[in-house]
Simulated scan of single mutants.
Amino acid sequence: MRTEAGERPHGAAVVADGFGLKGPRGWAFRKVSFRAGPGALVAIEGPSGSGRTCLLLALTGRMKATEGAAEVGGLPLPRKMAAVRRISALGQVPGVSELDPAFTVAEHLRERALLQRRFDGSVRTLLRRPAERAAASRALIDGALTAAGLDPAALPKGERTSVRDLERLEALRLSLALALIGRPRLIAVDDTDLKLSDADRARVWELLRSVAASGTTVLAVCSESPEDALRITTLDGEAEPEPEEPAGAAETSVKDRTETGEADRQGGEARAETEGPRNDTEDTTEEGAADALAETGRA
């Protein structure tokens, strides 16, 4: 039976064991293993094209893994992908959950609140008077905006500001607010620090820490992770030395290197490890990640 939104358990633990996804031309990522408790901040770090987005989408039930297993909030992947989608939400993910540049901030917020009420509300909520439903939606929007640190009054035209007129940091805050309207147990954000100044990057990580501190687990793709995040790295060449393991969580490393000696297959090797010696794996490629995205219709 579906519970009221406010009664849902908060924060989803994420566990991966030998998790991998292979496309027609190679592995997008492979042998990823880690554990993150509810309310953890998990940074998927590495260069563009190293399988970061595919891993993000697989862990939120948007792409089907082909190797290993994972659990999100106790729900096994890939068997319970639909259930994982119901408890997770995407912030900005280019090509998957982008903001419409022609929409205003208000239009995006109203649309998301209406969808939330229509598809995720209880029968009792749907039977409320229109004025009560509108007030509840407004409260939900205001709470999400506050949590995302977006003040509409500070925008050029308030909530009537078009997305195309937003700065990148403001757009990221809006995408997080839209995701938070659904009160998810897990939020995933791609390209977290792309095209941001050092000061804005610091603000973004502070924002994601506050979301995690509220109990919502956060997965964030980035080029460089903060020291306090549980880090999964995808690197060209040899893996860098890992920092000390955070208390209560296992540190994870993923290795990605490029092979140049094969004519029909390009790519590198991705490997995640928590302990023990490294083992050679099959090639992991940017093309493999693109193929895996293409299979979902999101390329």
Rank of each mutant, 00 (worst) to 15 (best):
G143Q: 07
A144F: 01
T146H: 09
A147P: 00
A147C: 00
L150I: 02
D151K: 14
D151C: 04
A154R: 15
P156T: 08
P156A: 14
K157D: 10
E159N: 14
E159Y: 15
R160L: 13
T161L: 10
S162C: 08
V163P: 09
V163A: 09
R164P: 04
L166F: 04
L166I: 00
E167G: 15
R168W: 07
R168F: 02
R168P: 01
L169D: 06
E170Y: 05
A171E: 02
A171V: 01
L172V: 04
L172M: 12
L172C: 01
L172P: 00
S175C: 03
S175Y: 04
S175H: 03
S175T: 07
S175P: 01
S175W: 02
S175M: 04
A177N: 03
A177T: 04
A177F: 01
A177I: 00
A177K: 07
L178K: 12
L178W: 10
L178Q: 13
G182Y: 05
P184D: 04
A188N: 08
A188H: 06
A188K: 11
A188E: 02
V189G: 00
V189D: 00
D190W: 12
D190H: 11
D191C: 06
D193F: 10
L194V: 14
L194G: 01
K195S: 11
L196W: 03
L196R: 10
S197R: 14
D198N: 07
A199K: 15
A199C: 07
D200Y: 13
R201K: 10
R201Q: 01
A202R: 11
R203A: 15
R203W: 03
V204G: 01
V204T: 07
W205C: 05
W205A: 09
E206A: 13
E206C: 09
E206Q: 13
E206Y: 01
L208E: 00
L208Y: 03
R209V: 00
R209Q: 03
A212S: 14
A212Y: 03
A213I: 02
A213G: 12
G215F: 07
G215K: 14
G215C: 12
T216S: 06
T217K: 15
T217P: 09
T217Y: 12
L219Y: 04
L219V: 04
A220E: 00
V221N: 10
V221M: 12
V221H: 08
C222P: 03
S225K: 14
P226G: 08
E227H: 06
E227R: 13
D228Q: 05
A229R: 06
L230M: 08
I232K: 10
T233R: 14
L235F: 12
D236C: 08
G237D: 08
E238C: 01
E238D: 06
A239H: 08
A239Q: 10
E240C: 03
P241F: 00
E242L: 14
P243S: 10
P243Y: 08
P243K: 13
E244Y: 04
P246D: 07
A247E: 12
G248M: 06
A249S: 10
A250T: 09
A250D: 07
E251P: 15
E251V: 15
E251Y: 09
T252V: 08
S253I: 15
K255G: 06
R257W: 11
E259F: 12
T260H: 13
G261V: 10
E262W: 14
D264R: 14
D264P: 03
R265C: 01
Q266L: 10
Q266G: 08
